[in-house]
Design a protein around this nucleic acid. Structure first.
Length: 191
DNA sequence: CCGGTGATGCCCT
DNA sequence: GGGCATCACCGGT
């Protein structure tokens, strides 16, 4: 089932947790590339680590728009990261998708990633954008349209199978418990 | 297995 | 001009 707009129009911490076990689907050159979401992080406008903490800019303006759209940004001179916009219009919130478990189209994904081992294909925020061919052309894309790039519902996750901890790769806001991942899943990114 | 480090370009101050 | 929501590779163990 395609996730509807109201799924995304909730608090970013709820959405970040509920996205676990859902499927990110990418239509690429006639192939379906699919990964199961196993790790997420939440960011919001009152959080010092958030791109929108100091207000709206050209880069982060998608975060202030309607929920259910993709916020893609470029970083470290060579990598892209993929986020899902949440919450109400005018409020800047987004969930960073940090890791996927490969599900479908694995041969294509392997080619896009330069022939890495299955464990290394999508187990990091910039790895999964490379493996699913996500770049700035998809910034602002509506994920509720069911085309090109979208998310479908997964099996519910038991509360005890979710680990809540601090985020990775940031300094500001590093003590906030805004990272969520599936316990014992080998495709979660490493620290 | 582990920690350290260079790559590389754009955004924002 | 500094810093970045990262990754892959290198060398020592």
């Amino acid at each position: 089932m395609l996730l509807p707009r109201q799924f995304y129009a909730r608090d970013v911490l709820i959405v970040a947790k509920d996205l676990l076990n859902c499927y990110l689907v990418r239509e690429y050159n006639g192939h379906l590339l699919i990964g199961k979401i196993v790790e997420t992080e939440a960011y919001h406008q009152n959080d010092p680590a958030c791109h929108a903490y100091r207000g709206k800019t050209k880069r982060n303006e998608v975060m202030f728009g309607p929920p259910g759209h993709a916020y893609v940004y470029f970083t470290y001179g060579m990598h892209y990261c993929f986020n899902v916009v949440t919450g109400a219009i005018g409020r800047a919130e987004a969930v960073l998708i940090r890791a996927l478990e490969p599900v479908k189209g694995i041969d294509i994904i392997k080619t896009l990633r330069g022939g890495k081992s299955e464990r290394e294909l999508l187990s990091g925020p910039a790895k999964l954008t490379q493996g699913l061919a996500i770049d700035l052309k998809l910034n602002g894309h509506d994920l509720t349209g069911g085309k090109i790039l979208y998310i479908t519902k997964g099996e519910p996750v038991a509360e005890e199978d979710i680990v809540v901890t601090t985020r990775i790769g940031i300094n500001a806001g590093k003590d906030l418990p805004y990272r969520f991942y599936l316990k014992n899943n080998k495709y979660v990114s490493k620290k």
